[in-house]
Design a binder for these strands. Structure first.
Lengths: 262, 262
DNA sequence: CGGCTTATTGAGTGCGTTCAACCGGTGTGG
DNA sequence: CCACACCGGTTGAACGCACTCAATAAGCCG
């Protein structure tokens, strides 16, 4: 695994410009005028396609490009002090990758495609000069970095204080909300990552994740086949994530009385 | 607690400029020429002093200033989905506060002084225009934000995969390294935060932290009286943080054979 | 089909929590 | 001055969640 081969090509032409991109309102061009949009487009390099398992960048690699996901999914991971791999985030269309590389001019984490995916290469040097010329652009980029900080800090909270079931519910809800923001169904989507990936993201063991998914299914909160997910009771999933019924949930299945708490 | 009263004053004059600041090489002015330094100084607002327990900013507060710690210590905290408070970081001299506020133009966390402290107010609007004029300045600020991302992501790793003893060792070593970077002793310093603060940072219970500190003391790794810390065996503390002797450490005190592993 | 990866399920253990008592220092008021 | 309360910290005992080890099942691909 972790092969480095990448599919480069199909780059030319104008049908892949930001103006036509599905994630225009989420990605870098967010809130820019038509005129500024053109300048952003000019700063963006070529597209790059990756197959499932391909590595987009790895720790120690010199920072040349940042990346924006055009389609597909990624995960970014690192090693803890013990050498164990953990996952810092899952990325989908419109998300930026590589922001943690700016500190030391080299990437600090590994980014791996979870499926056939495409990214826009954003040469960091060009981005810098663009930001120097366009305060609006700079501000937006700063916001994007700040959002990354917010996300990471939230993750710290999850792993510190929350139980396994609360963490998993949080992850499902997080994915759901992000798909909703992108115009997809918040109730029905595929989990692109393996159980092990989820576990490494949540700070759990894959067995625990598997067991919890089973329990959620038994409780009628979700329907799940392979990696195809249906969220049947979003409210209750939110209640679990919020830590309601800390004792309740243990094993009493079917009572469903907790939904009255909302 | 959490009183809002702050001691404002003693602002005037030039003896508090960046050029003379002890943390000049760590803080915003890092790597700037003398000429640029003056411009940075002009952008920095007044100093502000806080007593132990004072709140510097709180969630929802409009982003007006970022802050740099001149002396003293702070913690920044938030509430997890369950309403439980957790601590995202401890800040000391030269550290920046408030970077997570840029995303939504309002602060997302609470910053509390751990002792009598002073900060520089950095009006964000002025900082923005300054960055637009000085690419060097912008780059450095982006690096600072990226570093924050790196720190937060490392924290995620700690809480996901590490044991209680490994987390605590990591915290002590982290503080040690940061004091060393500031010219203080890496082996002898005071823990400015309570056991409960440490616990809320590490995702543990305060009882667990207390027990572990006791064990570290019994193992001869540290000397600890009240909050005064002496690190006696830095190597072994590093070994623990790295997860060496996962089984070893359990209860066999005094054998010290693990130091041979290095 | 066999070989491999991914996922599920079971049984037992252990780490950290939880509840609770106790201790030392500090400040306060009688 | 001492008695008292209070806060922060330490220590003890028992419980329970999630881990660990292990076996089985289900897809996927050659």
């Amino acid at each position: 695994m972790l092969t480095q081969q990448t599919y480069r090509g199909d780059v030319g032409a104008g049908d892949t410009k930001c103006g036509q991109c599905a994630y225009r309102s989420l990605c870098l061009p967010f809130g820019l005028s038509e005129r500024d949009l053109v300048r952003v487009e000019s700063a963006i390099g070529c597209r790059r396609r990756l197959a499932r398992g391909d590595v987009l960048f790895y720790p120690g690699q010199e920072l040349v490009n940042l990346y924006a996901v055009r389609f597909g999914h990624f995960l970014t991971c690192r090693d803890d002090p013990r050498g164990e791999r953990y996952i810092t985030a899952f990325q989908m269309g419109g998300d930026l990758l590589g922001l943690d590389a700016i500190a030391n001019a080299e990437h600090a984490s590994t980014a791996i495609a979870l499926e056939y995916s495409e990214v826009c290469e954003i040469p960091y040097a060009r981005l810098q000069s663009l930001m120097a010329e366009m305060p609006r652009m700079m501000e937006h980029f700063l916001q994007a970095m700040s959002e990354e900080i917010l996300r990471d800090q939230s993750a710290i909270g999850f792993f510190g204080g929350l139980r396994a079931e609360e963490r998993l519910a949080s992850l499902l809800l997080n994915l759901s909300a992000r798909y909703a923001m992108r115009g997809f169904s918040p109730r029905r989507f595929a989990l692109r990552m393996s159980r092990d990936d989820m576990a490494r993201y949540l700070g759990l063991q894959l067995e625990t994740v598997s067991r919890l998914l089973t329990r959620f299914r038994e409780l009628g909160l979700i329907r799940l086949e392979r990696r195809e997910l249906d969220i049947l009771d979003l409210r209750q999933l939110e209640a679990i994530a919020a830590g309601a019924m800390r004792d309740d949930l243990s094993h009493d299945q079917g009572s469903h009385h907790a939904s009255a708490c909302l």
